[in-house]
């Protein structure tokens, strides 16, 4: 399944080879830890075990910044 996400202002597509995808899977696929990142699904915070589908509007927020 393909999931389109928004990350740091840019759109990006994640490819998964399974059908049930959770917010935690998205973080994992992006190499981010829930320690400093979270997923927003249709404007609400999605918990790690929450499922997401291609129809959802997904945004990934990484709180780490440098500089």
């Amino acid at each position: 399944m393909d999931i389109e996400i928004k990350y740091r202002g840019k759109k990006q597509v994640l490819k998964f080879d399974k059908e049930k995808i959770t917010a935690g899977d998205i973080l994992k696929a992006m190499g981010l830890s829930p320690e400093y990142a979270f997923v927003v699904k249709n404007g609400e915070i999605a918990q790690e075990d929450e499922t997401v589908s291609p129809q959802d509007e997904i945004k990934v927020v990484n709180a780490i910044s440098g500089g």
Binding site: Y36, I45, A63
Partner: peptide, 10 residues
């Protein structure tokens, strides 16, 4: 924490 700050902004 950084995450708390991002959540507060959100």
């Amino acid at each position: 924490t950084e995450k708390e700050s991002a959540l507060y902004a959100f």
